[in-house]
């Protein structure tokens, strides 16, 4: 594996984990436009734990993930008071506040960022990503995953079917925060530094786009979405600016031809039917 390929795959792995963090809330019907804030929490938690407090790599990553989960859990209660556009804006504002706090904190290096002492390599990132993919596929296949999708579709009816909507939504934010935090910790260890400028509004926008373009109906969506938008620009081998321009054009076109995302339930059903003509399960 060339160094270049390794780099691309590591970014892909981090993006996939990050995208699943946003997907978990989206699958339960909430749009989180504050992804960068959650990822920044994981990255800076990792930096503090590893550099300042001397924790090992594994325990740092675990604790940074838990930090993301804790913040996700705590912020869920006020955020869930809001709906629709207000929730999009509240999550967005949350991320901006997180970045603002980091920017103004000397302990966190302010605008200078922080240098990591320990590193991880691509395989570690990819194995973690594989674990996350497996976990989300598992989760979405359980009755809890079914309940999440029910909350997404119709909250009042889900409630009458016995689903605890609030618990599902809070859990989605907490586990989403955990995965975004995990992706941030991996980012910090892989690149060897964290700087607050990376965690800007565009990052939040991009990761939400990975999820929505991939499709929120099945667990395949974020995987396909993140892969599509990480690998296609690499494959095109063009300048940075042209990549984003093409990314924008693809998004507009996607919304015209496949507004429910690349992967929909119908598409999966059709593929399954073609591969296994005898199998009629859903």
């Amino acid at each position: 594996m060339s160094g270049y390929m390794a780099g691309v795959l590591a970014i892909l792995g981090i993006n996939v984990i990050f995208a699943y963090g946003i997907y978990l809330t989206a699958a339960a019907g909430q749009l989180n436009l504050g992804g960068a804030g959650f990822q920044a929490i994981g990255a800076y938690a990792a930096a503090i734990l590893s550099v300042e407090l001397g924790f090992g790599i594994v325990s740092t990553i675990v604790l940074a993930t838990l930090a993301g989960a804790l913040i996700g859990f705590l912020i869920a209660f006020p955020i869930l008071r809001t709906r629709g556009v207000y929730m999009v804006l509240a999550t967005f504002a949350f991320a901006e506040v997180v970045v603002g706090i980091i920017l103004n904190s000397d302990t966190l290096g302010g605008a200078m960022g922080m240098i990591m002492f320990d590193y991880i390599e691509t395989p570690a990132v990819l194995w973690t990503a594989a674990g996350v993919v497996a976990f989300v596929f598992y989760l979405m296949s359980t009755p809890i995953g079914l309940a999440m999708r029910a909350v997404h579709d119709d909250e009042p009816v889900a409630d009458l079917m016995g689903v605890n909507n609030r618990a599902i939504q809070v859990a989605a934010f907490a586990s989403g925060g955990a995965l975004a935090g995990l992706s941030g910790a991996l980012y910090a260890f892989y690149f060897g530094f964290v700087e607050v400028q990376y965690f800007n509004a565009f990052l939040s926008i991009f990761v939400l786009l990975y999820v929505l373009i991939g499709g929120t109906q099945t667990a395949w969506g974020p995987l396909i979405g993140a892969a599509f938008f990480t690998l296609i620009p690499e494959a095109l081998r063009i300048g940075e600016d042209w990549r984003f321009l093409i990314f924008g054009v693809l998004i507009v076109l996607m919304m015209i031809v496949r507004p429910e995302g690349i992967v929909t339930r119908d598409a999966i059903d059709r593929i399954v039917a073609r591969l296994m003509p005898g199998d009629r399960r859903a």
């Binding site: 359980t142 009755p143 079914l146 309940a147 999708r149 029910a150 119709d154 889900a158």
Partner: peptide
Amino acid sequence: MPHLSVVENVMLGQHARPGLLRKLKPVG
């Protein structure tokens, strides 16, 4: 639920049954 299949809609009806472990079973 418009995005769930027929079986999934019907299985949602099982949600209120007791048992936390049952809810962690990867039925899908």
